[in-house]
Design a protein around this nucleic acid. Structure first.
Lengths: 213, 213
DNA sequence: CGAAAAGTTGACCATCCGTCACGATTGCCC
DNA sequence: GGGCAATCGTGACGGATGGTCAACTTTTCG
């Protein structure tokens, strides 16, 4: 009984751990706001820490640099999307179903994550001009490729370059996503259908433009 | 005869203009090297200027920041590609011909521009992790969209969302381009064919994988 | 309760950015 | 040629940021 608090993932075990979590969260929140207000490039670590109650030195107990904060934010985002992909993966067994569901999920996700920025006029991080490939993002791409490998392995005999196929699918999503966010109103459904039709049938799939329905 | 040197675009009019051009070129060359050697993010203006014979203050007579140098380099690159697109535009009158030629041109261009980086192991700027949308790049995208507007206007009756179509085409190119550059050997032909088939026919176009020829 | 551990603080030094007064070089007119 | 005005390069300087660290405060736990 020397170790009573053996809760592995206890929500708030001690005062120390609670403060640690709160500080980390405060820095991330401040960073989100400052990035949106000043722009990522010109933001300094001082700008971020000034938005909190903490001292300059404390920042470096949590992150090594401004870039690492960005990656944490971006990583969280990628992780949240990865969870949605999980559901899609388990339910879709053929290529078309998977692709349609994945694009729907992605464009909806993008619209939701940027809902605040869309309401006021704030340009969101995706549109600031830089696009960073974090490890978490690459991990999501790898998951998608694994999914495609599995699905296409069942479906077809000819060998397909799934690395390129994944790249094409991801490229369509990323580039179209930027454009979708600039439109008013933002319509994830239209974007998802367009993207899926393109990847499934190319120009032919989008030219006929759903005759019925 | 008071104005003898009325050459509008004279190559090297005076000593002053020659030095100006040489200095600008020296800074751009130095920047290219330093970006490749140290990485774009950590490079400072001092690092760039130290690679030249110039003083620190002189840098700011030519560029306002490191970012502006990057945009100049990237802008030049976009302009060079735009010239190739010019030829394609004038020759291609249908969608398939245009798309195939454009992808071939792009992936070849990408391979050529990064030939040096491919030879030694230097990771090139496209792969450093950031991707910046310069005005010149956006201009090229706008050109492509105009081309598609014209070609598809002739070809089909149904209205197509050419903004999204351009985004999809561009997204495929950019994302696949990154992957192409990581392969050894770099094969622009394969990449171009894959990209074109995807945009033209979607999965169907790449699954059958050219039976003849 | 008291000592060790963990964490916070803010000052500190090195570095970088962007500016600017000064000096040198060039263009130009007589 | 000679001399003046404009242009441009120079390098030091003020301001600001990055990252560190010794001292201090708070929590944990025996």
């Amino acid at each position: 009984m020397t170790e009573t608090t053996t809760d592995p993932a206890a929500e708030t075990s001690g005062k120390r751990a609670r403060a640690k979590a709160a500080n980390r969260m405060a820095i991330l929140d401040a960073a989100r706001h400052v990035f949106a207000r000043l722009g990522y490039e010109v933001t300094t670590v001082r700008d971020i820490i000034r938005e909190t109650e903490l001292a300059a030195g404390t920042f470096y107990n949590y992150f090594r640099s401004k870039e690492e904060v960005f990656e944490a934010l971006s990583g969280d985002s990628a992780l949240r999307f990865s969870e949605r992909l999980e559901d899609i993966r388990s339910q879709a067994t053929d290529f078309e179903t998977y692709i349609r569901a994945a694009y729907r999920a992605y464009f909806n996700f993008l619209a939701e994550e940027n809902a605040a920025s869309i309401a006021d006029g704030t340009p969101h991080m995706a549109l600031i001009g830089v696009r960073v490939d974090t490890p978490e993002l690459k991990a999501v791409f790898a998951e998608i490729r694994t999914d495609l490998d599995r699905i296409l392995g069942d479906e077809t005999v000819s060998s397909i370059d799934t690395e390129y196929l994944t790249a094409a699918a991801v490229g369509i999503a990323r580039e179209m996503g930027d454009h979708m966010l600039t439109r008013r109103p933002v319509d994830p459904h239209v974007a998802a259908e367009f993207a899926a039709n393109t990847l499934l049938s190319g120009l032919g799939g989008i030219a006929v433009d759903k005759p019925g329905e």
